[in-house]
């Protein structure tokens, strides 16, 4: 991965990964601040959490912290190399947010039963809205990713054509001489 400066190539996958890490961590922070602290809907620990749920929660919670830092430092590194692909980064941000929300809604709440969205209410509408919002975020991310890929291909083709024309002109000049 030799950095080719100053005409740095945008690095699509890395841009997407860095933003996805930030997106997942941001969603986790929103979950922690809004649902745990402000609304008080989620319980810190609802005592019915099985051991494996507790373990996965601890791992995930620490991983989010590290992901936030890792995502930002990767993003700063891409900026420094002038290799940030903005379209892919936006796609990654939404994919990370939606991916985390979906994982939290399905695996944490339903499979591992770490805690529920709210207590003492009919959970079904809450679960539907939660996971529906997650799917919406993932869909937006996927659409942005497709658009970014198409855009990158177009730019590549344009670049190739420009290079071709340049080569042709150079050849013409040579012939003229």
């Amino acid at each position: 991965m030799a950095p080719t400066d100053p005409a740095a190539e945008p690095r699509a996958h890395r841009s997407m990964a860095a933003a996805a890490l930030i997106g997942a961590a941001v969603m986790a922070a929103i979950d922690e601040i809004v649902f745990h602290q402000l609304l008080g809907w989620h319980h810190f620990y609802d005592r019915s959490t099985p051991a494996v749920g507790l373990l996965s929660d601890g791992l995930l919670h620490t991983a989010e912290l590290l992901a936030l830092v890792a995502g930002f430092v990767m993003w700063a590194d891409l900026r420094r190399r002038r290799a940030l692909a903005a379209g892919h980064a936006w796609a990654g941000l939404f994919l990370g947010m939606g991916g985390f929300q979906l994982f939290d809604g399905l695996v944490d709440h339903k499979v591992l039963r770490v805690h529920q969205i709210r207590y003492g209410v009919d959970l079904l509408p809450y679960d539907l809205v939660w996971n529906g919002a997650a799917l919406l975020l993932v869909a937006v991310g996927a659409a942005l990713a497709l658009r970014a890929r198409r855009g990158a291909r177009r730019a590549e083709r344009k670049g190739a054509r420009r290079a071709e024309r340049k080569d042709a002109r150079r050849a013409e000049r040579k012939d003229a001489r």
Binding site: F44, Y45, T49, L54, L55, D57, G58, L59, H61, T62, A63
Partner: peptide
């Protein structure tokens, strides 16, 4: 992670 689980 081990610290968080212990706290819970």
């Amino acid at each position: 992670a081990a610290h968080a689980v212990l706290a819970k």
